[in-house]
Design a protein around this nucleic acid. Sequence first.
DNA 1: TCTGGGGTCCTTCAGCTC
DNA 2: TCTGGAGCTGAAGGACCC
Length: 444
Amino acid sequence: MSRSQIRRGVRLTQADVSAHPDPRGLLDGSDTESGTPRDDDGCPVLHVDMDAFYASCELRSRPDLVGLPMIVGGDGSRGVVTAATYEARKYGIHSAMPMSRAKRLCPQVVILPPNFELYTEVSAGVMAVFRDVTPLVEPLSLDEAFLDVSGATRRLGPPAVIGESIRSRVHDEQGITCSVGVASTKFVAKLASTRAKPDGLLVVPADRVVSFLHPLPVGELWGVGEKTEEALTRLGLTTVGDIAHTPVDTLVRALGQASGSHLAALAWGRDPRSVEVPEGEKSIGNEETFPRDIDDPDVIRRELLRLSEKVAARLRQQGYAGRTVVIKVRFADFSTISRSRTLRSPTDVGREIYETARELFDALGLQRARLRLVGVRAEGLIDAADAPRQMQLDEPELGWREAEQAVDRASARFGRGSVRPARLIGTGGDDGFGGAPVAPRPQS
DNA sequence: TCTGGGGTCCTTCAGCTC
DNA sequence: TCTGGAGCTGAAGGACCC
């Protein structure tokens, strides 16, 4: 690969850099030779994205599966693909695809159940590499993050060199590959990393953003999903360039104020969002799809109790209290509704969350509607230490909160699920509170 | 074909207060 | 005292992301 190719945004792989005698010189363009600015000048934003992250984590301990089509996902009757190796993708398999369809497309595909503890551990190692480079790290999920390296270039070199250094360290320390996009804005860096995949790095020079963007199909824009793409197609807009040359008013009428004006700006490469270190969670929730549709209100209430206890335990573990309780109900026909209530004071007590969730559910008056999924979520999170406690007149000195904190301590010592509400005893499962109900049971 | 789970952000609407 | 509008908040739903 020639230097000019790299400098003009051609994908650079790990092998290219490893084979080059002086990758730093290769990437920084040796300004002294030409006197021209480097292509990554004015490109302080890196987007780093692990390649097929969950699947790659699994392959570390299963080298016998390297090179085979493999997917990670639940193998139940309603499972979907969580991650697929590039070999599996050749068969048309992609994430979020129903497992049944993936098996039809590739009958010999190897299926592994997800192991989120492993992914969380690998992710922590990867994020530590990022934070070695810069404190300005904005994780988007377990497997990707934005980095602002403008403060690190004196110490570590130009952004593209930093990107390559990150790729090497992630590979050496975690045994997985990643791709890096280098650009002047977050949104272009994200597009660049996608186009660098797998195992590559792509610089989009600041003066070539528009020519990079305009030929792309609208669906490649961050924030344009199925519905938005349909709306844009109805307007005859199929490329980013089409959007750029459409009046903002037209976009706003079709997509709403925020999306319309946002897309119009993105189409010209304008993205004022800076890399932000996240302050904390905004909501914490859990939901469960039943193995088969359920119409027994007692079973559904028991599931609400299990989910409420789980949400509360996570709130306490992370030191939050939630002000609003939201329930989500998905019917057999996949239509979905939610109901919420804001409490007088924030809570991290499972019993309080459950009482609210149950009242919201009962108020729906569903009789025996067939449900596919229920969920419980706490929103409006604040630090539990700052949460005012609303004492009830008849509340004992030691109440549910203290009881649940004792359960937390028991769980930490004897394992999750060692103590659980009497109604949940005997419901099976491995998540600490009995798992999803698989069949109606008599109320305990 | 048949659609998980966790999360964020946006829009719309209704109710309340000033 | 009544009324309309602005602004805020909560609730509900939808779209999107990984």
